[in-house]
Design a protein around this nucleic acid. Structure first.
Lengths: 131, 131
DNA sequence: AGTTGACTTGGAGTCAACTCCAAGTTGTAA
DNA sequence: TTACAACTTGGAGTTGACTCCAAGTCAACT
């Protein structure tokens, strides 16, 4: 599939995909006979994985390092990956906790302004802390 | 209190506090007789509020807009604040959901590498999705 | 009077992560 | 064949949020 289709499927932009390739986060894409990038399912999976790690707050630099660990050749690669993932998981836990604290603050504020805006009416739909 | 003490109490750096003042996110600080910045409890509260909103993913620009809504003079300020906060709360909900999805992915990966690294042993301490 | 050390300023530099651009190539369609 | 859209490249520019710097001021202490 073309870079355009890959972009559509992953939610990345074409520029971002090329940028990821440029910084060696993605391996050089396969090319067709006229030199255009061609992607397969494996490539898509990798991009999706990257977006997951990114939304978990991992920097591109760290994702790159993670991906560089060669499971076939390096006997320590697996445990290094484990260490990285565990650290990231812990950082993520604390980020989520921070966000949830911020959420509570927001919730309070929203309630406050609802009381100002809707004089003693329909204050029904309280948000719940997302699970 | 001095900028240094304010920085210590809020976790911001002195540079960041001055930067926030420069971009009009914070009002011009009061000065003592020799022109140095002096902060009171109200100022600290504002800084803490800003850090909360920031960790909720609100941009400094949006926080600035929120703070610029003048409750005394503008009859619509309260409902505009409500709208802003509600939008932010919704965005935050979806961010938290994303993070939790990423967390699940990480958790799976961690389990996978634990199986590789610790051959059928001590796979006890599963992480739980943080509340 | 001299030396710290904490502050002041305006402005420049940094960083991650894009985002855009100009100029060129290729494959398809009218 | 001529137009057109979809790609290609290297490199420059942008954004948000700091972070650092040089040069100067000020108050307190020895």
């Amino acid at each position: 599939m073309s870079i355009k289709q890959a972009a559509e499927k992953t939610g990345l932009t074409e520029d971002t995909i090329r940028y990821y390739e440029k910084i060696d986060l993605l391996p050089p894409a396969n090319r067709n006979s006229s030199g255009r990038r061609v992607y397969g399912e494996d490539d898509l999976e990798l991009m999706v994985f990257i977006t997951h790690m990114k939304s978990a707050g991992m920097s591109l630099e760290n994702i790159k390092y993670y991906l560089s660990l060669n499971l076939e050749e390096d006997p320590n690669a697996a445990s290094e990956r484990l260490a990285l993932l565990t650290a990231q998981k812990e950082q993520l836990e604390s980020n989520i906790a921070d966000l949830q604290a911020a959420y509570k603050v927001l919730e309070h504020k929203v309630e406050h302004y609802q009381e100002i805006c809707l004089p003693e009416k329909l204050r029904s739909k309280k948000g719940t802390v997302p699970q």
